[in-house]
Amino acid sequence: MIVAEAKNLTEIGKTIAPYGRILVLGCGTCVTVCGAGGEREVALLHDALRLMDMKAGNGKHVFLECTLKRQCDPEFLDVLEEKAANVDAVLSLGCGIGVQAVAERLPDLPVLPGVNTSFLGMAKEWGVWDERCAACGDCRLDETAGICPITRCTKGILNGPCAGTKNGRCEVSKEMDCAWVLIYQRLENMRQLETMRRYYPPRNFRAIPRPKRVLSKINAAGGGHE
């Protein structure tokens, strides 16, 4: 799941300043799940922006609300023809993908991001989100006990812990577990410590060259260096 975080209102206020009629566009998938851009956040942001306008003493903006099932698929964006017909800009609360998809769909309209797309991750519990995947294109979780050191170790190192770990926690945060301590413990439980003893060679950081593209059909143009 893509995890995002609401942008600061001050920042949003600056980006929308030049425009009058603004469509606040939510997305019903990932950003709904992480509470950053679903229908509830759209409504709350709408209220907050109106209040900000009022506070600034210039009620010059008009806001419209709409939440799509998913912003990152062109077919779901068909309704924008009508919804965005009379607006000056779209403030998308979708992730970076959503913003771009909407921008592609609306060639003549400014599409502004309302959230910061943070990472690929999961909920640890209500209201707590953790990164889990770097989308590196070369998954080797089989070698690290199903725990990704690329994302869960602050340095993303591959051959064991650095010397900064303390009490099983990472050197950058006493709240975060050291991924390598977790990997060691899990492998020990599974009696597979020899996996960790094996040398892990330098990674291929360009498993899919950028711009990345994945093909599942024939006769299509590949991405990057293809």
Partner: peptide
Amino acid sequence: TGDSVDVGDHKEAKPVFDLDSVQ
């Protein structure tokens, strides 16, 4: 390996760690 950039004076730097100390 090197300390994390988070503990230093350029916290916004991109950490490289293309290799680790063993590599």
